Simulated assay, not measured.
Amino acid sequence: AKAEYFTAPGVKGKLTAAFFKGVGQLPVDRSGARGAGEAAIKAGIQVVESGGLFGIYPEGTRSPDGRLYRGKPGGLARVALATGAPVIPVAMIDTEKIQPPGQVVPKLMRPGIRIGKPLDFSRYQGMDGDRFILRSVTDEVMYEIMKLSGQEYVDVYATAAKRQIADEAKARAEEAKRDRKQAAASDENGTERSDA
């Protein structure tokens, strides 16, 4: 879970942190700073090596529109290659309907879950420093999730798509503001002419 869930101030922040700790979530620093996610990867490796299950969302964030976006190479692939554990692809269905981006309170409905066959990446053992191998492992997992979910695949990162959507919304708002100003100005000019 994003690190902000563990560090938010106030009573609500403390309750949120307690909830996420209580359900076994690990904080993930998504700031993009050098080594920011390293602690989460090491924690994931420890979980798997101690016999536990480690779940990770390879997109790194929620889909802005229900489509499946490119997985980030790194966490998923590095944990799998470091531990030799199989990867079980899981597709969550209709999460964008349950809690659309920007909606605080989710709708009361059950998401669909489809679980695929375990994927074995032992052929890449010891190659977790190769970025092309990390990309290949991630892409193979994302392909399986796409098959399970039936989602349209978009070969860009969801964070980039979210930025683009936000930029487009901002541009539309600015254009609407300009249109309103122009309409007000032309109304003023029309009124002045009729007064003359």
Rank of each mutant, 00 (worst) to 15 (best):
I165S: 08
A85R: 00
Q25C: 15
V28E: 04
L148D: 02
P118W: 10
R163L: 10
G22N: 09
A185E: 01
G126E: 04
V154M: 00
P86N: 02
K42R: 14
G190S: 09
A18K: 15
A33I: 11
R110S: 09
I88S: 03
L148E: 03
R131N: 08
G150Y: 04
P58F: 15
R193K: 15
A169D: 06
A40Q: 07
S50Q: 13
L15T: 00
A82L: 07
T16V: 08
Q151P: 00
I56P: 02
G24Q: 13
S50M: 04
R180D: 11
I145S: 05
E59I: 06
R180L: 12
T191W: 00
P27R: 10
A77Q: 08
D179Q: 13
S186Q: 13
A169Y: 01
V90I: 07
D155E: 14
F19C: 10
D179P: 05
K107E: 12
Q25P: 13
L68Q: 03
F20T: 05
R67I: 13
Y157T: 15
Q46H: 08
A183H: 02
E140T: 07
I98F: 00
A85I: 00
V156M: 14
T7N: 07
V11S: 11
G13H: 11
I41V: 14
D187T: 00
Y157Q: 15
F121K: 06
A161Q: 06
G102E: 03
F132I: 14
A36G: 14
P100A: 00
A82K: 05
P58Q: 14
G51S: 04
G74K: 03
G129K: 01
I93D: 01
Q103N: 06
K177S: 11
Q182H: 14
D195A: 05
F121A: 02
G32V: 05
G32Y: 10
K107V: 07
Q103L: 05
E49Y: 00
L108A: 03
Y69W: 07
K147D: 01
G66T: 09
P73V: 13
Q164V: 05
Q182T: 12
A91R: 09
V48H: 08
P100V: 11
Y124T: 07
G66V: 09
A8L: 06
A17Q: 05
S149I: 12
P106D: 10
V28A: 06
